[in-house]
Amino acid sequence: MDFSQLNKARAKSFNDQKALLKKLSKGQTVLCTHCNQPVLLDLTGAEGTKGSAHCAKGCTHIALDLM
C-alpha cells in the first residue's frame, strides 16, 4: 500500500492548524473556512488543562492539551 498521499494530507492539515493557532495566539482575526465566522481561542477549559480553537457554529474545532 502507498501511504504517501495520506501522509501528505495529514502533514498539510497539521501545518494548517499550527499556522491558525499561531495567528490566533498573536491576536489576529482568523475566519473559519466553512462559515466565515471568527475562530476564537479559548484557553480557559473547565479542567484547566484543556483549551480549544473553534468557530461559533462548530465547523472548526481544534482541541488543545495545555501543560
Rank of each mutant, 00 (worst) to 15 (best):
M1T: 08
D2I: 06
D2M: 04
D2K: 10
D2E: 11
F3V: 00
F3M: 07
F3K: 05
S4V: 04
Q5K: 09
L6G: 01
K8F: 08
A9T: 07
A9P: 00
R10P: 02
A11Y: 05
K12M: 09
K12Y: 03
K12Q: 12
S13N: 08
F14W: 01
F14D: 09
F14K: 09
F14V: 08
F14C: 00
N15Q: 10
N15L: 06
N15I: 02
D16G: 01
D16K: 11
K18N: 08
A19Q: 12
L20P: 11
L21R: 12
L21W: 14
L21F: 14
L21G: 13
L21P: 15
L21C: 15
K22M: 11
K22V: 09
K23G: 04
K23V: 03
K23T: 05
L24N: 10
S25D: 13
S25C: 14
S25I: 10
K26P: 01
K26H: 12
G27I: 11
Q28F: 08
Q28T: 07
V30R: 07
V30W: 06
V30A: 09
C32W: 04
C32I: 06
C32Q: 08
C32K: 07
H34G: 01
C35A: 04
N36E: 14
Q37R: 07
P38N: 08
V39R: 04
V39E: 06
L40S: 13
L40R: 13
L40P: 00
L41F: 13
D42M: 00
D42P: 00
D42V: 05
L43S: 04
L43C: 08
T44G: 02
G45C: 10
A46D: 15
A46V: 12
E47N: 15
G48E: 02
T49N: 13
K50Q: 12
K50Y: 05
K50C: 03
G51H: 03
S52M: 04
S52R: 09
A53G: 10
A53Y: 12
H54C: 09
H54T: 13
A56M: 05
A56K: 13
K57R: 10
K57A: 07
K57M: 07
G58L: 01
C59A: 02
T60N: 06
T60L: 11
T60R: 06
H61D: 08
H61K: 11
H61S: 07
I62P: 02
A63Y: 00
A63T: 07
L64Y: 02
L64T: 01
D65M: 03
D65V: 04
L66Q: 02
